[in-house]
């Protein structure tokens, strides 16, 4: 109960990080707007408006960076001077760390929903099954938060953990061929089919919209299993750092 009472304040802290709002909400909105103008009328090979795909990709790409806040707060509260105060408090510190992670995931999903709503109602992008899209966004936010926390717990220098989280996000964006085309060899095909969270999430959403439910579930389950496995890794690493 005491830990739950802190979640409201953790949320306040997150919402008041204006730089994060700029990077994870304003910038995507501006980019979505510009892309929507540029791609107006353009269709894919299957006749679908390209704007649908682009909007999905944009929202998912920014979810890759959604773990930044949780990792920053875990670092400040448990690995800087504030840890003295936190450890002197009469509550379960591990649960408190979890609560920060949960708030980070919820916040990231909420921003994703705002972007989804914006793209659908302002630019007419079709997200298909909304519940399914939100579930996929949730899985991506969960995975990104877990990965960022693994970096936080496994390196002593927080700046390096931050750089690693950026490499995770930007790296998969590049591997997905979103900046420049990647070679079409087996390695890249394998990575983009079974490993890259962005392509997995995007294919899960497209799959469900194109009535390939089996494939959609397969892709989402890869994300879910990866989250589960990495969650255990995070627990093991976190236990060593947070009592």
């Amino acid at each position: 109960m005491r830990v739950i009472s802190t979640m409201k304040f953790t949320f306040f802290r997150m919402v008041r990080e204006y730089i994060t709002l700029l990077l994870l909400l304003v910038v995507p909105i501006v980019l979505l707007t510009v892309f929507s103008f540029v791609l107006e009328g353009v269709t894919t090979e299957t006749g679908e408006p390209l704007i649908n795909e682009q909007n999905v990709i944009f929202v998912l790409v920014f979810q890759m960076f959604g773990g930044a806040l949780a990792m920053a707060y875990i670092h400040t509260d448990f690995f800087t001077e504030r840890k003295q105060r936190i450890y002197a408090l009469p509550f379960n510190q591990t649960l408190y760390a979890f609560s920060i992670m949960v708030c980070g995931i919820v916040y990231s999903v909420l921003l994703g929903i705002v972007l989804m709503t914006f793209s659908e109602f302002v630019f007419g992008a079709d997200w298909g099954n909304w519940l399914w899209a939100i579930y996929i966004i949730f899985l991506l936010a969960l995975l990104s938060n877990i990965v960022c926390l693994i970096f936080t717990f496994s390196v002593n220098n927080f700046k390096i953990a931050e750089r690693l989280s950026e490499v995770y996000g930007v790296g998969f964006v590049i591997l997905a061929g979103l900046i420049f085309p990647v070679p079409g060899n087996d390695f890249f095909v394998f990575v983009n089919t079974y490993v890259n969270p962005i392509t997995l999430a995007a294919d899960a959403i497209y799959g469900m919209n194109q009535s390939h439910a089996g494939e959609a579930w397969f892709r989402s389950n890869i994300l879910l299993i990866a989250s589960g496995v990495l969650f255990i890794v995070m627990l093991i690493l976190g236990k060593r750092k947070i009592r």
């Binding site: 700029l22 990077l23 304003v26 910038v27 501006v30 980019l31 510009v34 103008f37 540029v38 900046i179």
Partner: peptide
């Protein structure tokens, strides 16, 4: 961090990430 957002935008709108000819007239 804020400059990063600005770079993103001016790089895209300046035609470094996509050919400028693909943009609408106004852009």
């Amino acid at each position: 961090l804020v400059y990063m957002s600005v770079i993103f935008l001016i790089v895209f709108l300046g035609g470094l990430l996509m050919p400028i000819e693909a943009f609408p007239d106004i852009l």
